[in-house]
Design a protein around this nucleic acid. Sequence first.
DNA 1: TATAATATTGTAATCATTACAAAATTGATA
DNA 2: TATCAATTTTGTAATGATTACAATATTATA
Lengths: 156, 156
Amino acid sequence: MELTLKTPKEIGDMLKARGVKPSVIRIKVMQYLLENRVHPNADSIYKVLLKDIPTLSKTSIYNTLKTLSSKGMILEVMTGAGEIRFDGYPARHGHFLCVECGKIMDVNLECTACKIPDLNGCKVTEQSIYLKGICAECGSGDKKNGKKSGKSKQGA
Amino acid sequence: MELTLKTPKEIGDMLKARGVKPSVIRIKVMQYLLENRVHPNADSIYKVLLKDIPTLSKTSIYNTLKTLSSKGMILEVMTGAGEIRFDGYPARHGHFLCVECGKIMDVNLECTACKIPDLNGCKVTEQSIYLKGICAECGSGDKKNGKKSGKSKQGA
DNA sequence: TATAATATTGTAATCATTACAAAATTGATA
DNA sequence: TATCAATTTTGTAATGATTACAATATTATA
Ligand SMILES: [Mn+2]
Ligand SMILES: [Mn+2]
Ligand SMILES: [Zn+2]
Ligand SMILES: [Zn+2]
């Protein structure tokens, strides 16, 4: 919703504010995740940014993503399908994964009443809610996307 | 809590009730998951059952786990660490993952007030809650387990 | 027993991620 | 500006969980 199209300089300041030295790659990755809320995986981020940075290596993408997530600037979203997806908005929200097309959608859930009992001694630093099912496109038979292919998983 | 030590025959009946033909391996895997609520990964299940079934292959473990989870008899628990853990109790509950020792603990959370809005058209078939943090043992300095090794992750 | 269906095994592939060391870049300093 | 150390980026090789697949074994049934 709050997509205000930040400039590279502004993103650099965001990085500095978190103690991350702004580099071209870091700014581009952060910018991409801010402007594309599709929860992409590392490979699809790599493929997109490769057009801008022809010398880009996939290791740099992994390094950058780990740096950003360790500083709490992005979220790692699990899929259970052997890949991690990334999210430029670390604010508390849940995720719905379509098991048909692999799409991940944000879910605004008000779970204020979630009482977490008997965690004797455990320090909770993170809490996330995952939903799974069939998205609207895949559910309603004939659409151009997803459909009945079954193998049309997307990583972006 | 409800650990009633089912016999192999009883477990076989559980399998049949779900349309799964009971085989030695399937019964052993199901029994192990029922009696050991530690959320093991495929490899540690394999290592344990190998003592009973010397001809066991890891592929059979994966086959069995996929069969059981597709029939809703067990749960796949994500860790985000490139491995899946398994749970013999598919009843609704959450999971706490200790990022230090890798232990996964059950969490009984009453999330009845979880309102899931604006899922326009999405059919939700599964809902899970994940917590992350430091467990009691790892948190309180000097214990025999986990501690400050940092590399002491366990898959079982 | 013969036969078909299913389960199990072994091996090779897949694929995301990580390890690691070399090369490039940056930023501060003399 | 030249130097130099710190950091970033790159390329390649490993890792490790999972899957594909075909051969073999088991089971149930006729
Ligand atoms: Mn999100
Ligand atoms: Mn559990
Ligand atoms: Zn879909
Ligand atoms: Zn722990």
